[in-house]
C-alpha cells in the first residue's frame, strides 16, 4: 500500500527567517524521493510541516486525495504517514523491542501482540538480537535503526526519513541503503533527506534541492547534480574539489 504526496506553496517563518519559502513538491506513489540542500536549508522544517509538528503559515499538504494541512501528527500517522527524527528521540527508559512495540500499538490487540509484531519488524530489519537492549545504551548506528524500525512499525504508506545515514560507517550505510530499498519494495513511498550523496544517487528516482527555504530544482539525480544553480548553491565545493 502506498500513497502519493503533494506539497503546494508551503511557507513557514521563524521570527526573521523564512525557513520554508513557497515550497512545492510532488512525490509519486511507491517511489523514493530524495531531498538535499545545505545546512539550514529548511529540509527538516519541511518534514516537520508534512508530519504535523508545526503548522505552516500558508500552503497545502495533500496525502493522496486528502488535505492533511491542519491535522495533528497522530492523525497523520493514522492516515499512513510516518517519520524519523534527525536527532534520534528514542524512549530511552525502554528497550529496543518496546520502543518498536509502541509503534505497533495502533494495529495490535494487546501489549503481547504489539511485542510480537515488533519482533517481526526487528527481524525484518536484521536487528532482532538487540531487542532487549535499553534504548539509551544503543550506539548511534542502532539509534538510527531504531528510528526507522519505530516508523516502519506503524505500517506506513509514506515514510519520511531525515538523515538516517548521518553518523554511520561505511558498511552501516550500505546496510541502511539495503533496508530502505527493501521497505520501498513492500510498496511504501519514501521521502528521504540525506547528505550522503551516493546513497541518494543509488536510491532516489527523483531529487529535490532546497536552498534557503526555496526549491532550487527537482529532477532525476543525474539532472539535478548537473544543474548549474545547484552546483553554485550547494555542490560547488565538492564538485570543484
Amino acid at each position: 500500500m502506498s500513497v502519493d504526496l503533494a506539497v503546494e506553496n508551503l511557507n513557514k517563518r521563524f521570527g526573521g527567517i523564512l525557513a520554508v519559502n513557497g515550497a512545492g513538491l510532488r512525490v509519486a506513489s511507491g517511489t523514493i524521493h530524495g531531498i538535499i540542500g545545505p545546512n539550514g536549508a529548511g529540509k527538516t522544517t519541511l518534514f516537520n510541516l508534512i508530519a504535523g509538528s508545526f503548522l505552516p503559515d500558508s500552503g497545502r499538504i495533500l496525502l493522496g486525495a486528502r488535505d492533511i494541512t491542519a491535522l495533528t501528527p497522530e492523525r497523520r500517522c493514522a492516515l499512513g504517514l510516518a517519520r524519523t527524527f534527525q536527532i534520534p528521540r528514542p524512549f530511552s527508559g525502554l528497550d529496543l523491542l518496546d520502543n518498536v512495540a509502541i509503534g505497533c500499538l495502533g494495529r495490535a490487540r494487546t501489549v503481547g501482540h504489539a511485542r510480537q509484531l515488533a519482533h517481526e519488524v526487528l527481524e525484518s530489519l536484521g536487528i532482532g538480537r538487540y531487542a532487549d537492549t535499553l534504548a539509551s545504551a544503543l550506539p548511534i548506528g542502532l539509534r538510527k535503526m531504531l528510528e526507522v524500525a519505530r516508523a516502519v512499525a506503524t505500517a506506513p504508506k509514506l515514510l519520511l526519513l531525515d538523515e538516517v545515514m548521518g553518523g554511520l560507517h561505511g558498511d552501516e550505510v550500505d546496510r541502511m541503503i539495503e533496508t530502505i530499498r527493501r521497505i520501498n519494495a513492500t510498496g511504501v513511498t519514501v521521502v528521504m533527506i540525506e547528505h550522503v550523496l551516493p546513497a541518494i544517487m543509488s536510491l532516489a528516482a527523483q531529487v529535490t534541492v532546497l536552498d534557503q527555504g526555496r526549491i532550487l530544482c527537482s529532477g532525476t539525480p543525474e539532472a539535478v547534480t548537473q544543474d548549474p544553480a545547484v552546483i553554485a548553491a550547494y555542490l560547488g565545493d565538492e564538485v570543484l574539489a
Binding site: A51, E74, C77
Partner: peptide
C-alpha cells in the same frame, strides 16, 4: 501500567513528540 494504555503513557512520559509521531493521541 502493563496494558496498551500503560505503554502509551510510558512513551508520552519519555518523549511526547516521538509518541505523537507514532500515532498516540496524547
Amino acid at each position: 501500567d502493563h496494558s496498551k494504555t500503560g505503554l502509551r503513557l510510558r512513551a508520552v512520559r519519555d518523549n511526547e513528540d516521538a509518541a505523537r509521531a507514532l500515532g498516540i493521541h496524547t
